[in-house]
Design a protein around this nucleic acid. Sequence first.
DNA 1: TCTGGGGTCCTAGGACCC
DNA 2: TCTGGGGTCCTAGGACCC
Length: 421
Amino acid sequence: MAQIFALLDCNNFYVSCERLFSPRLEGRPVVVLSNNDGCIIARSNEAKELGIKMGAPFFQCRELMEAHQVQVFSSNYPLYGDLSQRVMGILSQLEPEVDIYSIDEAFFRQAKGKPQALLDNGRHIRATVRKQVGIPVSIGFGSTKTLAKIANRIAKKQPEHGGIFVLPEENLEAILATIEVGEVWGIGPRHSQKLFTYGIRTALDLKNANDTWLRKHLTITGLRTAMELRGVSCLPFEEVPAPRRKSVTSSRSFGQPVTDLSGLREALSAYVSIAAEKLRAEHKKAGCLQVYLTTNRFRDGEPQYANSLTVNLPNPTASTLALIHHASEALRQLYRPGFSYRKVGVILVDLVASSHEQQHLFRAKHEEQGELMAALDKINRRWGRDTLQSGSAGFKRPWKNKQTRKSPSYTTSWHELPVVR
DNA sequence: TCTGGGGTCCTAGGACCC
DNA sequence: TCTGGGGTCCTAGGACCC
């Protein structure tokens, strides 16, 4: 039986989360900043209208934002993550087949029906989420994931549709002709630029482009995108989030440049601790780790250096202390004096489930520090991440960035529950 | 002064093997 | 005189996503 894809997407999700607990923000321009208060990663419609661009550096739009009294928030992931779960929970109650794609998006799939029936269903879902969670969403229907994305975009951008749009089959081409090729899911700025120079400017042009040409210039992924525009479904629907992640990363840009090895090691130790904690939460061990460091590429006048090193671990491990040990050694090899460093990071790869790991004949169980790590995680879960940590992560942490505009974790921390007077 | 962080997939090219 | 070719694995780099 023919099926249809739908995409539910939360409108300006992070901003909507902030508004939920501060109704005074309704109707006013609001933005949310990236992890380090560096870039703008979410904007309300009012902020978009002021011309504030996605990903723009905060300091560059500061004046404009002050002039228009834009409300600015540091990102509050515990809050967004919790509200995301609530939205996805409701969708999963209403729809049997759900494919959660990101923190604010989920595909669902249903039997192809009359457009009016799809529209009614979409309206019902939208109203239910709005009522039970309070987050506004848009829903688009199309015969492939890529077309559902386009439908969603139209639902969001053209208010007359009331947040729901079903891509019609009859004049699909006329609609695709109005979509710039760079707005198609999977076509980024680089490909977009290249396509333009070859005269492919709209989604319709891409749909009609030559397969051999696409394969050559955009690789197999670009060809798949074109096929999807033709209504041939190439992107799988993944109901179970089964193909679990293959790597765990932790990194941050520094609040101020770091020049010495010991400062870098402190920061790296802190990031390794975070990554190891994530690893243990998923009951995994890493067989390999990669350390990288880089100077500030935006500073033209300064000498630049970036490098990375991959280390195969003697045994897969999830021990913070063992991982810090190997990461520090890699860092020592990578480090060159005389540079102002901006960032270090660690990537854990070759992940194996703890239960599937090969037992090592000559390795004592206590070397894994399983009980120590379990205690560490328990304490830090209860009292906060920094309660118990490796001494190598330092105490003063001059490299640490501050998030000065963070709203409370209203829904996930007892200490920060909103108070009703 | 101040420019995110965490992921995935694909390809080309080198190393290595027989 | 004359020096293969195909398969596999690994890695770096590029592009994309939210």
